[in-house]
Design a protein around this nucleic acid. Sequence first.
DNA 1: AACGTGGCATGCAACGTTGCAAGAGATAGG
DNA 2: CCTATCTCTTGCAACGTTGCATGCCACGTT
Lengths: 336, 336
Amino acid sequence: MSATLREVAERAGVSVRTVSNVVSGFALVAPETRARVQQALDELSYRPNAAARHLRGGRSGLVALVVPELSTPYFGELAGRFADEADARSLMLLVQQTGGDPDRERELLDGVRGQVVDGLIMSPWALSPAELRRRPGGAPLVLLGEQDADGLLDHVVADNVAAARDMTRHLLGLGRTRIAVIGPQPHLHNATAARRLAGYRQALSEAGLTPDPAREVPVRRLHRADGAAAMRGLLDAGTPVDAVFCFSDQLALGALHAAAERGLRVPADVAVAGFDDVEDGRYANPPLTTIAPDKAAIVTAALDCLAARLDRTTEPGEPRTIVVGHRLEVRASTRG
Amino acid sequence: MSATLREVAERAGVSVRTVSNVVSGFALVAPETRARVQQALDELSYRPNAAARHLRGGRSGLVALVVPELSTPYFGELAGRFADEADARSLMLLVQQTGGDPDRERELLDGVRGQVVDGLIMSPWALSPAELRRRPGGAPLVLLGEQDADGLLDHVVADNVAAARDMTRHLLGLGRTRIAVIGPQPHLHNATAARRLAGYRQALSEAGLTPDPAREVPVRRLHRADGAAAMRGLLDAGTPVDAVFCFSDQLALGALHAAAERGLRVPADVAVAGFDDVEDGRYANPPLTTIAPDKAAIVTAALDCLAARLDRTTEPGEPRTIVVGHRLEVRASTRG
DNA sequence: AACGTGGCATGCAACGTTGCAAGAGATAGG
DNA sequence: CCTATCTCTTGCAACGTTGCATGCCACGTT
């Protein structure tokens, strides 16, 4: 147990309140008194009690990051950045996983809020916008990823339609015309996958090609195994394919794996591209072409947005939609 | 803001204390009263105030996980498991990154402790055992990984000597005799790398081979880039090598990358093995032979250990060293 | 009728901190 | 010499919860 203000006060021969003033650095304290108190603080190695401050001030300094899975490279990288950035802002990061389970998402939305954390950054997966909006007035919430909830909730997104269009155009530009996608998730409230699909179709149409349902392979989850399974399915079905655009790098890595299994050369026989720009992709064999969302901007924007909501001196303001940039990162898996 | 006990008490026409009794489920409360209170609780959707409970009870229900880097697959996977297991034990997980910086490690050891969290699980990287032991009596600490601190601090480890020996024997068993290692870190207080090196040398000696310093390539960090650089160095130096045992899967993935770059076939020209069994390795091209430490056991053991220290009803007891199992996972990167 | 017993409910205090408003002392001005 | 002013310090209260001890009532026993 650390020393309390009272113990320090007794040692320094001043009131508790004065010690508090010294600790918080504010108010008028005579230099001499300040020095005496400071010495007592040092001698007893005083640390403010977080629980008492939290109770008194209503602020815990804790922010929750709620993601489907921390073990996923994309969320691992993002969580790492959030941890660093939170630290730089004197916040602590509490992480929770939903596993993509809607019940768990609901629970965390209700449960964590107003309890321990000052705010919540969440990457929803299965919850509908309506459910996300049903907030019992707890701690501020910032969403990551597309939500079809523009103007109703704070959220930070990349322009997924444009990004998917960019990637598809890149593949078309390489002369590929039988481009498949792996990653649609028609069974979920997942606006992200839907928009990437839309961007892909748009680019095909622009090029005068008709999207072929047989080349749009849905997946249940975004793991490597799902990508590998989807790729195998595509090859087994005999659908002619000269490029595969996966909606996540994880899926793409699985697809690469399956292609290698079947003896296909990448990109000679089939080009493979991903989305997310995770470290794995850079060192894949061959290195993976991908869309790199501006992760630093995602983190900064989300925390800025939360900070604005937490600031009691400013007006709450309207929910904001912050769009971050992205970049097409061309590597050997498509470039030949 | 959520309702308080007092508001609920007023609504139900009972005392605050009685409401508290209902909430905590304990004590003697007449069924009728309980029902009335419960209804008031529901109507006001009461949530206990974490700050007040923390202040009163001295328990926050928070556990900190301190790792070098969350973006590293190994720690990402571990953090994910910790988050789930903590959740199952009604604890919340707060993550902090050190980036392998000794100052930051020191700071977190002193700073987080006794402040917000009930306990600390830390994977130290650069700190010496002496510094780790210099604890000002804060929250309980459990270390992950070898520490040369047996009997002085709680820690959870794999038998790294045995694991490295197992892997080296496996490579020897394949007929490889020019086995290099990538991963020693002579400049750090890193007992883990030291023990893996010892296990490797032991196995060589057993086989009548003399460890060759030119085949022991040190690295500064454990990223893919370091593994790739080390592999290139090894090849450029012209040291004959028919197998490379990397002290982490990350290093091994980098080494695979560098081997592919130079047109080497794996495992025909050079076998490559890793350590950690991260998901990436399973889907690498070719899939990576590795040592799979029992991650579930690490997480369970660490939290059990912490729980034991947090339990006020039992005696503190001596610091424990818990050794978890490991398994040699042979895949195509060595098997041919 | 007095007493003990057990079931249930409650009041008080304290955890450590900070906002508020007022107190104490010193100095300057009338 | 008294008061106004300023600088510095302090006591009180409250944040929401729970441990402790006690109060109250009804019932059964002597």
